[in-house]
């Protein structure tokens, strides 16, 4: 025995950890979730998770007609803002795997704002899908023309989905996620933060005050200083301060959460990064 058992096991462990990951793994994982979802299309899904419902309040509405009447006369309560699925569609063929849920906002008491944002989202998704399908069609034709096996073709895989981050009487904050798989998966995130009292889109300055940049930078820098090995250095294109158009959403504590996409300030292994910035006093 030239080596201890422990060392040998460690070597096998290293082999195990280095198991080659096939490029279609993210695609296979996504496909499984899509497959699980598909039968549910039959039952048109009410988007309960996304809707901002005050359940106790609704229960009271259902139970007590006099309470409902009183509530309808109370201007404070007004219509409830929510995010609903405007439309959803799925394509699953050998060449395309498309899973889309288009959100729309309603009940904000700012119809123009709703129209503008809803239109923007719908156009963004439509344009994106049209472009992606054209590109994928060209790629597929080139792939076949150069002798590629249709069975090995990794289909165009794109999904759009949304998630409500917070919804109070004052603020509606939600995320629009675009996910695409080619050689590996890519996620694009867009956030909408709406001030329901003014009908305007919130900026970090609105939430954090005039020194928003200082506050936001401090939180991110503290996280980097705690674990510098998990981030790109400034020379590598890492964090150099939050930008004017920094992505963020509002969480249910009313604090803004800064979001950095994969590779934005850290290696891909760190994934997407989020930093909550406490509003303080």
């Amino acid at each position: 025995m030239t080596q201890s058992g422990k060392q040998q096991l460690d070597q096998l462990r290293q082999e195990y950890r280095k198991t080659e990951l096939p490029p279609e793994l993210p695609y296979a994982v996504r496909a499984a979730f899509l497959k699980a979802r598909r039968p549910r299309r039959m039952v048109r899904r009410l988007v309960t998770a996304a809707a901002c419902l005050f359940l106790a309040f609704l229960a009271a509405l259902n139970l007590s007609p006099s309470f409902a009447q009183a509530a309808a006369q109370t201007p404070l309560i007004g219509p409830l803002a929510e995010v609903l699925t405007f439309t959803e569609y799925h394509v699953a063929t050998d060449r395309e795997f498309i899973d889309v849920r288009v959100p729309e906002i309603t009940g904000t008491s700012f119809p123009e704002l709703e129209d503008r944002i809803n239109k923007e989202i719908q156009e963004k998704i439509d344009e994106d899908l049209t472009a992606a399908r054209t590109r994928a069609k060209e790629e597929y034709e080139a792939y076949i023309a150069t002798g590629g096996n249709p069975e090995d073709y990794i289909p165009l895989t794109i999904s759009f989905d949304y998630e409500v981050k917070s919804c109070t009487e004052k603020i509606l904050s939600f995320e629009l996620e675009r996910f695409e798989v080619r050689a590996s998966g890519f996620t694009d995130l867009t956030y909408y933060n709406i001030d329901l009292t003014t009908g305007k889109t919130l900026t970090l300055a609105d939430v954090l005050g005039p020194d928003w940049k200082k506050k936001a930078d401090a939180v991110v820098q503290a996280a980097i200083d705690a674990h510098p090995e998990n981030f790109f250095t400034a020379e590598m294109g890492g964090f150099t301060g939050v930008s004017e158009d920094q992505r963020f959403y509002m969480n249910s504590d009313g604090n803004p959460v800064l979001v950095f996409e994969k590779y934005e300030i850290a290696p891909g292994s760190s994934g997407e990064l989020e930093f909550e910035v406490p509003i303080g006093e």
Binding site: Y16, T19, A28, G185
Partner: peptide
């Protein structure tokens, strides 16, 4: 999705080939 690599490695350690390991991951999901 966060742990997909771990799940795949584990499946691969039994199946020892890519297609079966991917199948196991999908079926497990």
């Amino acid at each position: 999705e966060e742990h997909q690599a771990d799940l795949y490695r584990l499946a691969y350690s039994y199946m020892k080939n890519r297609d079966d390991a991917l199948d196991v991951v999908q079926e497990s999901i």
